[in-house]
Nucleic acid binder design. Structure first.
Lengths: 188, 188
DNA sequence: CCGAAAACTGAATATTAATTCATTACCGGG
DNA sequence: CCCGGTAATGAATTAATATTCAGTTTTCGG
């Protein structure tokens, strides 16, 4: 009996991501996704129960890939870890524009399910852990961790956007500056 | 002959805004807007050419209202001014949450037209002026002003969002905390 | 090589929602 | 108080697109 080709599921997710960047979540059609992935519309329904399930799977994949990219707290001195993670975060935003666009658009859409919300918290886990350690070591302010996570995530995201159209040679200095602003904001 | 009731156009725009907050731009239907505004679906088309025109009119109105919202640098010591403006900015975002949500969602959607992009340009002047003064007085870091403006605006916007569903009595402390984070980030 | 089981197809169907329009309700002037 | 005209209505129309499914192709074990 013939086997499902799992790389096809990847093709479809990738096609959906690119299509969303092109026409937005509101303008996304399964037909366009299928065409872009080089399969028939019906095939999409073999790999995903429906549009909602497809978007949920995509969200999950994007968020978990992100967590991998930013990497775990490696136990080096907090400030070094903080800077490394902050810079990695900005790198990710710049190198993965379609993913960022998708996540932003899904967040306040009717496709945002509770399951996706859970995955989102999971993706923020490494950042959360690092900030908890900083608070425990009294190197960071005694401020609600959830507030800090939002502060750091949203600030880095917004600033990385700013760097999108910047000459490459200015970027390292920019990155250092932004990480310093964030560090100064949160340090005790 | 019967007159068009212009307050009805306002009702429809308001209903669209609230509906978008409830179901997102992707889930917006004219029927739901009409129901919320207490008119028939056809009536929407008397006041707006179509869905796209409605959204463009709404965007224009929201952006111009935001531009009218002026925070003056009153010449008091910089830190006091910084805190007052930061808090006022968050107040604005909280009091106009539906508008903020709408603007964010439209920005990454196919409804974002060039006309809307033009309307968007105004607004950050008072913040810029305050930051320039701080740099001149050497109270703030010597960092590109445009970067600082983005940092402050986007951070305050993101954090104010977080406060949207917070018990009222926690808000003043939250506001103070966030303003302090931003001050510590930018101070020399 | 064959048969079967599952993948794959894409046209047909169902659904959803934007837009239209024939009809009715309402207002203001004569 | 009645009439002309516009506002308002909401069911019908149209358009787009999500989903299904009967038929076809591919793969794989024997």
């Amino acid at each position: 009996m013939r086997q499902k080709d799992e790389s096809k599921a990847q093709d479809i997710l990738r096609a959906a991501l690119d299509e969303i960047q092109a026409v937005g979540l509101a303008g996304l059609s399964i037909e366009a996704v299928a065409r872009r992935a080089g399969v028939a519309t019906g095939t999409v329904y073999i790999y995903f129960k429906g549009k909602e399930a497809l978007l949920e799977a995509l969200y999950r994949q994007v968020k978990l890939a992100f967590a991998d990219f930013v990497l775990r707290d490696d136990g080096r001195p907090l400030k070094a870890t903080f800077f490394r993670m902050s810079k990695a975060y900005m790198d990710y935003v710049i190198q993965h524009n379609p993913e960022i666009v998708f996540v932003r658009q899904l967040a306040n859409s009717p496709y945002m399910t509770d399951a996706s919300r859970e995955v989102s918290a999971l993706g923020a886990r490494p950042v959360t852990a690092m900030l908890e350690r900083g608070k425990a070591e009294q190197l960071l302010k005694d401020v609600d961790t959830a507030w800090m996570v939002t502060f750091l995530s949203e600030t880095l995201k917004a600033m990385a956007d700013l760097a999108a159209g910047m000459p490459k040679d200015q970027y390292p200095a920019f990155q250092e500056t932004v990480a310093t602003l964030c560090w100064d904001a949160l340090k005790a």
